[in-house]
Design a protein around this nucleic acid. Structure first.
Lengths: 230, 230
DNA sequence: CATTATAACTGAGTCAAACTCATTTTAATC
DNA sequence: GATTAAAATGAGTTTGACTCAGTTATAATG
């Protein structure tokens, strides 16, 4: 890498990245309406006109920011799932991961939710594709759980998915509104997984007992982990 | 009612109503950005300036539309609950009602969801109050269910609420995107209630003994806390 | 190195749409 | 019918997204 002499391509990419970074900050701080294109340009160290060489309009700029967010999200989810073998370990990871990311990027998430609406059809194809890729990770976990005979198969997959993500995003909102984001995260995840387990687990012998114990054991494992790393 | 000679107060109220009606249509058709104040004024048969005598700005206009929607929603929910005695009958009614209303007023709902964001704090107080009134109906049903000993009490009420409404709104979105709104409604409600029942119903046979587990869990949490802060 | 060609950039200017306010209209009261 | 205050108007202001004719940087060529 010859940093001294950046090629034209490199310069363009660096600039695009700078613009996206600036847009991300501006949108996070002020929402879509409140964000000013002129301000984004200034933050990116670029003239306002330049910005329109990189992105068609303000809406496209937001879409690019969201696409970037989704890509990171999907990558993290896939990686985490690969690290866990048990179905409910995987689901718990996904729940914690999704909730944590929602809390960290709440403003962007709100813009995403609000962007499904009121777009010409050709515009929202992008969002739907991004979303489909992301939830494919969850779908895979669930399908494997069903194949293993650990999950009931009488509930349509998409409804379980809507329950999972709907519940988590509403919980994230509640936590945000209460300003008690971090402290209750484990609690929320534990109860969410508990509800999901009771709702979806195929009862092999006795129902409730093992799940509660397992939950506590898992929690204990995480504490132990912290001890090790700390 | 002397319709021939409307009093001044009546005229003002009729006009406000006309403006709200026009705004409702315009916002539903074009979203917030796409809606034009001039168009709303024209539809209401009023000059643009007049509109600003009734509502501070475009945002306030949307808020008024949403408030109206919420009031209808709350009234319908309360009335329906009064018609049912059993806890899970009530919950099923609420689920079907909420889902049906979400589908009918989907565009308004999206605007509502998108409006929590990016408002100065003093603005969103209104939304939160409206929401609190609405979900109070659900909370009442759940509290009574717990008091009757039909529901487990170890899951925080707000988390059950977030699960319920989060799941339903995500399901509504999915149905909307698939354009198969009406036919699957009963199906969705049935599965949603099934999941909720398995997740929340207290098995009448064996009264579960959560106290031991709970005590252990809480003890563990306290240890974990100490580790974090230490 | 000089010249040319092309890609990248700029910011003053355009335009659309939310919002204002001086003026006019309406209707209640004497 | 005169008086007065509330209600309504729409031309004008302001703001901010977007455009485009002109400029500068970079690469290609002789």
């Amino acid at each position: 890498m010859n940093r001294a002499i950046p090629t034209r391509r490199e310069k363009v990419e660096a600039r695009e990245s700078a613009i996206l970074e600036a847009a991300h900050r501006e949108f996070s701080e002020h929402g879509f309406e409140g964000a000013k294109v002129a301000q984004i340009a200034q933050r990116a160290g670029v003239a306002e006109g330049t910005l329109y060489l990189y992105f068609k309009n303000k809406q496209a700029l937001l879409q690019a920011v969201i696409a970037r967010f989704y890509e990171t999200l999907t990558a993290g989810a896939a990686a985490g799932v690969a690290d866990h073998g048990e179905t409910f370990d995987r689901l718990e990871f996904l729940a914690r991961y999704h909730l944590a990311e929602c809390l960290a990027e709440w403003r962007i998430l709100e813009l995403l939710i609000g962007s499904y609406r009121s777009l010409p059809d050709y515009e929202d194809r992008g969002y739907r594709a991004l979303n489909r890729t992301y939830v494919a990770v969850f779908d895979g976990v669930l399908r494997e759980g069903i194949a293993r005979g650990e999950l009931r198969e009488d509930v349509p997959l998409w409804q379980v998915r809507d329950l999972f993500y709907g519940m988590l995003e509403y919980s994230a909102r509640t936590l945000m509104l209460r300003d008690q984001a971090q402290e209750d995260l484990d609690d929320v995840v534990a109860h969410a997984i508990g509800l999901l387990r009771r709702g979806m687990e195929r009862s092999p012998g006795r129902p409730d007992r093992p799940s509660d114990l397992e939950r506590i054991t898992q929690r204990l494992e995480r504490v132990a982990e912290k001890l090790d790393s700390g």
